[in-house]
Amino acid sequence: MEYQWEWLVVVYLYLGGLGAGLFVFSAIFDFMNQKHFEPLARIAALLAPWPVALGAGLLIFDLGSPMRFWRLFSTVQWTSPMSVGSWLLVAFTMTSGAHMLLWARSNPEMPIGIGGLHLPLPSGVRRVELRRTFTALGAPMGLGVGIYTGVLLGAVPARPFWNTPMVAMLFLFSALSTAAAALLLVSTLRKTTVSSIPERRLLYTADIGIILIEIFLIVPYFLHNALSTASQARSLDLVLGGPFTLAFWIGFVALGLLLPLIVEVLDLVPLIAGRKKASHSPLWAYVSAIPVLAGGLVLRWVFVFAGQVSHFG
């Protein structure tokens, strides 16, 4: 059977999760209310809408009849994860867009694209409060988008490889992990904020936690499938000796989870212990961030393609 969903969908799910994760981090950093995390919160906010919007564009481009995409928004089909997800995506894109614009004013010298844009507000409206309203609105949406990318797959009983709630969880945490990695990468690339120790410590800590959660989600994913229907148990063969084994275990687990985990732990421990000065070499950040970003893509590739091969019955 031919694959129905291919690279465009893989990238779409990836970008959707990434954007959602960025927004969630922006919200977290913002509400931490610490001055030295504000640049991170701002970068995350300024980045968040773009991957989602791009991903949605890819999705439309992938349709058999792209000119009819508007029909998605002429109806709400409550039983269809795609319908609910599409609405969620629109709401999130708009919210995160507004959120971005409100952040943009806060730092006119921000070089990142829209950073210099000035959004005039009516007098009497306080920018920070308005922004935080959008942050509060957008954060649950971001979590929703992150979960949705997995629910889209998980809600299909016909594809046993997908058909467990663990997929949604795995996709959500992978989304957060890639967002943390993206922030690490961007903050490292940007000289002005490069590797401030608290930033790095924060991002490392977050990422280590998320990676550990991911690892502990993989275990129940396998258990759940192995102990569920025969088709689900059989579907695991795809990554246990089947054609997706290498991609899953080497591409995702080893390179996307374990390698960055080790790098981050090795880099973080001295930072926490304060035994040495923070290294200003960006190498460590790259070595952990890039594999995480790549691993997230591999995870989605494996799931999107392997799921379509798995058959019910």
Binding site: M1, E2, Q4, W5, D62, L63, G64, S65, P66, R68, F69, R71, L72, S80, M82, L152, V156, P157, A158, R159, G307, Q308, H311, F312, G313
Partner: peptide, 18 residues
């Protein structure tokens, strides 16, 4: 139909196609 193929994947009988 917008051609998203979600239904194709959702059919346990693989009876649909794009």
């Amino acid at each position: 139909c917008i051609g998203c193929r979600y239904c194709v994947l959702a059919c346990p009988y693989d009876a649909r196609f794009a």
